[in-house]
Design a binder for these strands. Sequence first.
DNA 1: TTATAAAATGTAATCGTTTTCATTTGTGTT
DNA 2: AACACAAATGAAAACGATTACATTTTATAA
Lengths: 331, 331
Amino acid sequence: MAITIKELAAAAKVSVATVSRALNDDPKVRPETKKRVKHFADLLDYNPNILARNFKKGTSNIIGLILPDIYGEFFTEIIRGVDAVCYEHGYYPLVASSHSERSMAETMINFMGQGIVGGYIVMAPVLSDDLKSIIQKKNLPIVLINGRMTYEDCDSVGVDNQASAKAMVTHLIEKGYKRIAHISGSKKNNDATRREKGYVAALEEQGIAVDKKMIKSGDFDIVKGEQICREFLSSKNKPDAIFCANDMMAIGCYKAAATMGFKIPEDIAIAGFDDIFVSQFMTPRLTTVRVDTELIGKTAADLLIKRIAESQISSFSKIVIPSTIIDGESS
Amino acid sequence: MAITIKELAAAAKVSVATVSRALNDDPKVRPETKKRVKHFADLLDYNPNILARNFKKGTSNIIGLILPDIYGEFFTEIIRGVDAVCYEHGYYPLVASSHSERSMAETMINFMGQGIVGGYIVMAPVLSDDLKSIIQKKNLPIVLINGRMTYEDCDSVGVDNQASAKAMVTHLIEKGYKRIAHISGSKKNNDATRREKGYVAALEEQGIAVDKKMIKSGDFDIVKGEQICREFLSSKNKPDAIFCANDMMAIGCYKAAATMGFKIPEDIAIAGFDDIFVSQFMTPRLTTVRVDTELIGKTAADLLIKRIAESQISSFSKIVIPSTIIDGESS
DNA sequence: TTATAAAATGTAATCGTTTTCATTTGTGTT
DNA sequence: AACACAAATGAAAACGATTACATTTTATAA
């Protein structure tokens, strides 16, 4: 039922070409004509059919936001950031999550060539080979969200996991802790390995020998965090601080400490990473690394929209979102 | 660069019409022709241009998922459910969140008539007048996600907040608690008011007088929950159990109890609503109401996709997603 | 075999916009 | 006033699919 450009043209007594140009602010159309067209557009409540426009132009004002999965606040913050920037620029975020039934690569291929999206934001903590190959032979702009990495074939936005982890461990050392253990994330997870590297780097820089026994591999989950913490606390040479690769595992440590009768931070200090929502309400308040996740989403969207708009391809950017150390009472 | 229907037609030596029909499983095309066309489609890696199709058909395989805001796990679970069902049916969810800068109504109007979405899933804990009026004069199918309500102008999916809250309070009464207080949510929030009604209904049914002083208005936040719990615990006629309208406020109660030296559940029992992720890790494990949020998303998407596909409008459905009581150690 | 209906396929119009190219209008110079 | 040239506008093609309608092929019955 919506009014079309033809009817608007008739009303404004110009050709459809002129209407199109006027509404797209083509400098070739006279200011007064432009004004008249816009006036009638308002009057008749004309909205261009975006589907027709996208179809004709061969692009889309829809952005594919490809996620490895969707759960927890980290993802909502990313989505929120992307959403905000998209709205500002007349773009829309289309969310697609991979899971056991569907790989990210599959999802992306699914989109490609269909014209349904004008570009992607891809969140890839694990960068599989097929994903890499898609990125390489991409025909659409892609912005990668992930821990800082050496990948050079597209724009990327992320936290400097290594530097942040290093800063946190250094902070703990400065507070006087001598025997700092680390509960890492999965070996396959890029973020996790970078954080572990940061932990090692901090110790080395401060001249503390790295003890392999002080690093145990977790999986970013509460239960595993609790279990590993138990192991640390019952070992003969127990650490005086534990740096967890994320806050969830830190929660697990709290539980372990509580049930084993250890006081935080007197008997054992705990530090996390992420500053998830509940961290601020934990007693004692968790020492952790705060990342402005929404900003990651915003930055990625900004970058992608610019990339979609520009015609010639300039060199790829790599944007690092700063992180802050939250010095809680758990250390 | 993608191959078009014309090239495919040429390759398969049929007309574009036949190709279109073959790929859309039109019974009018001979099985062998269909097979040949599909074979060449595979061979040439042909994907129909969805933009062109949507444009021509005047509909879209994109679903607008309109949220009041995006944060926390509740939303990710909804999104995940919607995403899963969409993927199955070749639809895509476009996420748009309202916030201070943009009302839901505005967002929806923005979509309408542009053809960019084929329908909406709208999550509306607060149902404003302009939102109602949009729903009434809708030209696209809409599925509402919200607490059970009396709204009749479109399909809706939600939890029966009132019945669930009533079940929980009844459960507490059966466990022997006599003085059960309630920390409610915001008065404007539909879910909150239904839960409060359930609380009142349970007391009345069990022949317990409702004491106005035992109901205090929270805002679904930890801090407010802690503050109100303090008030309850320091009142002269202190309750023996507190039913919170959500888990967040229950977390606040845990903090209040801990700092004031009350033991859960011996001195004060706590119950929540939502069963958010951390609830299972709280000590003692929180008694709460578990809702299969992902199922809400799935159901809404199912309903909407059916609605988009069908031509004639049948009567609206109202689907209630069941909830379960998690009997934790906090009561 | 032939007439006739049914099934399969083809031709071309169509959706609403953008954009190329042609045409008209306007401006400035002599 | 005449001309050249620039600016503004219009006419029509194009994008890639679907689909109404026309046409051809196949099947059925006499």
